[in-house]
Design a binder for these strands. Structure first.
Lengths: 211, 211
DNA sequence: TTTGAATTATTAACACTGTTAATTATTTTT
DNA sequence: AAAAATAATTAACAGTGTTAATAATTCAAA
């Protein structure tokens, strides 16, 4: 009978399945090992530690997000593209809570960032390539908007950061349940937090347009 | 000799000290017990579980923050007050990382929210009183701004939420090191993330003023 | 004051966690 | 077939939060 094929991929798949099924908290090295059908310590032959697995999943998440983002490059009107990016980002965050947490909330995956290639010597700063790339595509969209007359006089990078942080803030408040906890009186009369989120996004877009 | 005075307060103090010294990750029930000079299980006579201790610290954090906020009620001009609140919030987040995490990031403390008093019957929604109160003071400041001609035509509550989420987004990106990780090219030429944060805040204020 | 109840604290244990060292099993190469 | 290299395992360490059973102490009534 065929030997079991163990590899970084098979471990990662199991980790991903468990992660998406039970969330991060309930995904241990031992769980993953059982899912793959191997002993826990075998995992350490393929991954240095748990944070490295988290980093690999973090990369997978960014692959999904950047795929979604790149589809938006066909939207010609830059402000429309910016809007679409925002919706896309929020959708991703809400629909892939756990991925979002690995990518933008958890600290562990950042412990295994690849050092910038080329410069092997010395203690070069670790580089968050995936995050940089995603942010860069936001920056260039903002820049395009400015070429079309939007956001006059604003520093491109700072504005991009503000837009990102606003979306990020909304997403984490939503995902960790805080939006839901705010009493309806203080947050608005809309029924559920999804509607509040949706509405807030639209208002924000209108706000940006008028800047 | 006098018997040791054990109480919820003494346990909480130890928890707080350890928490502020070593961070959340390195603060276990056993650590706290050692600090107080009791056995780990004794803690469970005073607190139901670890999350309840976290909730107590979460409340302490809100006490500090609301004290700072209430000092700002003397700022008459509402937009100035809003600005001051923003700076105050950010300062608090950066200077009290761990408190901020308990108050606005961690999920555990929210498991021990008090149910709305009065309504004992049935499964009433848990209520995040501390968060609500803080948010309410933001809302009323935004409302005051609107009375003075700012933010014309905007829904008060939604705008307050957007302002909060923007501040929150900046704070968490800063505190979990992501701002620092973004390459200087993509985020701006300023040296450190503190300056980026400061600058971003100023730009945001200008942005709000012009809305 | 002594007995008994109530309170307070402790020890032992359970079921986990990530991770390392030592050992066994398997594959590959000589 | 024997030796070397690789792969996987078991046992163990040092932790974690938490519960049940047990011991120590305090307090009130007889």
């Amino acid at each position: 009978m065929k030997r079991k094929e163990i590899s970084r991929e098979s471990i990662l798949k199991a980790a991903k399945d468990l992660f998406l099924k039970n969330g991060y908290g309930a995904t241990s090295i031992r769980n993953i090992a059982t899912e793959v059908g191997i002993s826990p310590t075998t995992i350490y032959l393929y991954y240095k530690d748990k944070a490295e697995i988290m980093h690999a999943l973090h990369q997978e998440g960014f692959k999904i997000l950047s795929t979604q983002f790149s589809a938006l490059r066909n939207v010609e009107e830059p402000f429309e593209r910016l809007k679409a990016m925002g919706r896309c980002y929020m959708d991703f965050a809400i629909r892939n809570r756990d991925f979002y947490e690995i990518m933008f909330v958890m600290k562990e995956p950042l412990e295994h960032l690849e050092l910038p290639k080329g410069k092997k010597k010395g203690a070069a700063d670790p580089c968050w390539e995936e995050g940089d790339a995603a942010f860069q595509s936001l920056i260039s969209t903002v820049a395009d908007c400015q070429k079309h007359g939007y956001f006059k006089g604003y520093n491109t990078n700072i504005l991009a950061l503000l837009i990102w942080s606003n979306m990020h803030g909304l997403c984490v408040l939503k995902n960790d349940g805080r939006l839901e906890l705010l009493s309806k009186k203080t947050v608005g009369e809309e029924a559920d937090s999804n509607q509040v989120l949706q509405h807030s996004f639209e208002i924000y877009v209108n706000m940006l347009k008028k800047i």
